[in-house]
Design a protein around this nucleic acid. Structure first.
Length: 280
DNA sequence: TATTCCTTCGTTACTTCGCA
DNA sequence: TGCGAAGTAACGAAGGAATA
């Protein structure tokens, strides 16, 4: 699987300038990291799911970005970062490959070769949602951010299944285990002067966030309440320009753990193959 | 191109808890 | 009882998409 490496590589190398003149790898007010994370999930899923590739080749499945889903049961709406769906209109010129360029996604040679061999997944107006992805990050102030993080993640699967019980709800979470962090919020002056560092109690803070994410409901069949698949990726990111490290040791989920990224992709692949085998 | 609106998530302020 | 730590609720700045 490549998603987490693509995400950390892209966050390491991509910087955006704020209005104070500072360059940031990660900015909490941007959705760039969410988009890159979702892109990686779709990339891995497409590479590992033959049925999905056939559906994409046949033009049965496309994707949408920032798609608004409306929960019919509770009459609430929410925008999902990225959805796989059936098309309801003419395709756009956007494709999975073209938005990789738009988002400055950094691929190595092997990933580029895989992408070149995938069928062209195109963006089109959303018909019925097959899969909805929500990506969330917890980079600093872990403990204080937990209630909001949980509420937002919890509302996502409720909205997805309130709109479409069949749709696969996917959650991707990224937790920072770095001891120190440069927050764009606390450094709204030119950073060249005196940067203000946030300091974390690690691994405790990351563990708190991971434990909270694990409290989210999950489901094993249509009709239940919860995420169909959920993963937790742990990174070490001081946000100071240094490379972002992907952490594989505990408290990051280990191979075989239900929250491990690879497990999530394998699970999604299986669910897709059984739930949408008759999609045409 | 300018403006508006929505989303994100880190921060502040406040409350509760635990311990000496 | 007082203090620091932990927990909770709500706010709001900023990015970016949508719209005029």
């Amino acid at each position: 699987m490549h998603g987490p490496e693509i995400l950390t590589r892209t966050l390491s190398s991509t910087t955006r300038r704020d209005r104070f003149g500072n360059l940031w790898q990660y900015h909490s007010r941007s959705d760039h990291h969410s988009k890159v994370a979702c892109w990686g999930v779709i990339f891995d899923l497409l590479a590992t799911t033959p049925l999905l590739r056939r559906h994409v080749e046949a033009g049965v499945v496309c994707f949408g970005i920032n798609h608004e889903m409306r929960d019919f049961v509770h009459d609430r709406k929410k925008n999902l970062d990225l959805v796989l769906c059936t098309p309801s209109g003419a395709a756009t010129s956007d494709s999975l490959a073209s938005i990789a360029s738009d988002y400055d996604i950094q691929l190595n040679d092997a990933e580029r070769a895989i992408l070149d061999n995938l069928p062209r997944l195109i963006r089109a107006p959303v018909g019925s949602v097959v899969m909805a992805l929500e990506a969330k990050a917890c980079m600093t102030a872990h403990q204080r951010a937990l209630p909001r993080l949980y509420d937002e993640l919890n509302s996502s699967h409720l909205t997805v299944h309130g709109a479409s019980e069949q749709a696969i709800a996917v959650g991707f979470t990224m937790v920072n285990i770095g001891e120190t962090y440069l927050s764009p919020d606390l450094n709204k002056k030119n950073r060249a002067t005196e940067p203000e560092w946030s300091r974390h109690k690690q691994p405790r803070d990351a563990q708190l966030a991971i434990d909270k994410i694990k409290q989210l409901p999950r489901r094993s069949k249509v009709g239940d309440v919860g995420y169909d698949a959920l993963s937790i990726v742990v990174i070490d990111m001081p946000n100071d320009g240094k490379p972002v490290k992907l952490i594989k040791a505990a408290p990051a989920p280990q191979q075989g753990d239900i929250y491990h990224y690879d497990t999530m992709i394998a699970r999604l692949s299986g669910i897709y193959a059984t739930r949408f085998k008759d999609l045409a």
